[in-house]
């Protein structure tokens, strides 16, 4: 790719930051399940996926660093809440396993498609990272699909729980696709086709699984959309999460830990 213009650099950084923050915060949330998941085997699987997410965020912050931002630890552990660009879905507390699984399903579906689209990005560094993540995401979505179909068809309780988790998560998940300031630049430069395109593909892909799981998708036209995260307006849950995450680091940010 040719030398980036100022606006292209801004657009690119904004995109990478959104993705990386989502990955960091959801990976952090999912790690809260460690040793507490209903089944030991699933505990191990869920932790692996959380580690992948944190690993993704690290690689993306490294890319930001290459584009002139501070090092990954500084980006993740010293920024203020308003500088985070994650969507609201990832900020919510883990709740019960129904909520966490549904969030995992809805988010990872979008993530898998996003990295698939990004693997064809004109910004090569990002395309290369995306290609690598795509392989991991295949297992995450396979995991989520299997659980959804199982729980959606099992007991009365599991069906009811998954449906209400879906109802709760859906408006939050639509916040993943909050239009960005730079969508036009990103798409005209073939960096990323845009959140709208992604949302359309995502809806098609979740529908297949939700149908097999006998769960009904809330009507998108009448559904709320939890926007604001991409612009730095967050739920009440992000601040305490960041305080906790940086508790040790901030004892002395200049120390080596």
């Amino acid at each position: 790719m040719k030398q980036l213009t100022e606006i292209q650099t801004k657009a690119l950084k904004d995109l990478i930051c959104r993705i990386a923050d989502d990955e960091l915060i959801l990976g952090h949330r999912n790690s809260e399940w460690t040793a507490l998941v209903p089944i030991l085997e699933e505990d191990i699987a869920f932790s692996s996926m959380a580690q992948d997410k944190i690993g993704h965020s690290l690689a993306l912050y490294q890319l930001l660093n290459k584009l002139g931002e501070p090092d990954p630890d500084a980006i993740a552990f010293t920024r203020k809440e308003k500088d985070f660009k994650c969507c609201h879905l990832v900020e919510y507390p883990i709740g019960d396993y129904d909520f966490s699984l549904m969030r995992h399903f809805l988010f990872d579906k979008s993530e898998a498609i996003r990295f698939d689209l990004l693997s064809r990005s004109s910004f090569e560094d990002l395309a290369n990272i995306a290609k690598k993540f795509r392989g991991e995401l295949k297992y995450h979505t396979m995991h989520a699909d299997t659980w959804l179909v199982q729980l959606g068809n099992a007991t009365e309780e599991s069906k009811a729980r998954m449906q209400s988790a879906l109802n709760q998560c859906f408006p939050l998940a639509l916040g993943i696709f909050e239009p960005g300031e730079y969508d036009e630049v990103l798409s005209s430069e073939n960096i990323f086709p845009g959140e709208k395109v992604l949302q359309g593909m995502w809806l098609d892909s979740i529908k297949i699984i939700l149908d097999s799981a006998n769960l009904s998708i809330p009507d998108i036209d009448t559904s709320d959309r939890s926007y604001g995260g991409r612009k730095g307006y967050h739920t009440e849950y992000l601040k305490p999460l960041l305080d906790e995450m940086t508790e040790v680091y901030s004892i002395d940010p200049n120390a080596e830990w």
């Binding site: 790690s31 460690t34 040793a35 030991l40 932790s47 580690q51 690290l58 993740a76 906790e244 830990w257």
Partner: peptide, 29 residues
């Protein structure tokens, strides 16, 4: 140790501690 995963200072420690505690759960299994 699990309660410190969310507070581990920096990526290196966070990732390592997650993997360690995951191993312990694997040992239980």
């Amino acid at each position: 140790e699990g309660t410190w995963i969310t507070r581990a200072p920096g990526f290196r420690r966070k990732l390592a501690l997650m993997a360690k505690v995951q191993d312990e759960v694997g040992h239980a299994q």
